[in-house]
Amino acid sequence: MVATISWKFTAREIAEKPELFTSGHRACAGCGPAIALRQIMKATRGPTIVTNATGCMEVVSTIYPYTAWKVPWIHTAFENAAANASGIEAALKAMKRKRRLKQEKVDVIAFAGDGGTFDIGIQALSGAAERGHDFLYVLYDNEAYMNTGIQRSGGTPHGASTTTSPGGTDIPGKTQMKKPIADIMVAHEIPYVATASIAYWQDLLIKARKGLEAEGPAFLHVFAPCPRGWRYDTSKTIELARLAVETCIFPLWEAIDSEYSLSPQSKIMTLKPERRKDVREYLKMQRRFGHLFKPKFEHVLTDIQKIIDKRWNKLLKKCSMT
């Protein structure tokens, strides 16, 4: 289902490619999602229409009358990015059938955050995936509702303190686990699902391109740290994104026609386990996990490691790595 990759993204080629998501957007300094969007728009292969769910990226990129988008772009609501993409794709199909489409092929990308994907948008996403629309859905995951002030989402990890799951004296932040959204999308048996990280731009670009080339729905889960919400210095965005992979809390993989395979950045953790880092290293850099380093909640650190190990082992099995 996915075309053979006959191209490579070199730094030079990408640097010279025009910016479709431009400067002048008003994301916070050090914004991970803004990096994700920039990089993905560099992976486009031709005429593209973008739809965006309500959220940080929608807000910061189109503060009226300004727009940071060089491609046709539409936002309508929070929970419906996938439904919008369905409509755009249906319109393109109908107009092509009626010979009213100028372009031979127009790609459709839907961007949504974790709130718009794990939570309020999952119904529209599941419906669009089941119907088989040809589009790339990009989840930029900063692990909470950052646009409205750091509230917990289904994508917030266990133990994280948010404004609606605060690390209190009795409760150590979010008590539930992060929803395995990408696996849920694999279960839809769509042609392409992948996880990616802004720390590995080439891998991210290749996956975005594969998603665009896949005929049918593609889902890309991009890990995109948020300095404001995770409470770390703005310069550490890429470092944290890298650490999430190196600690296996956010492994990189892809599933082509539901066949899982580990991406090189995560595969190395099985081939050379000594490279795998302690999750504490990742957690201690972020004040959203600060409360876990108090004696009372230290057991949560153990729990987090258990969750990671359990999910990592499950993933290895799916990737036939055990």
Partner: peptide, 12 residues
């Protein structure tokens, strides 16, 4: 609400 200015005119 169609935008009529490029964001590049807004300096951050």
């Amino acid at each position: 609400g169609v935008c009529w200015k490029p964001a590049t005119e807004y300096h951050t």
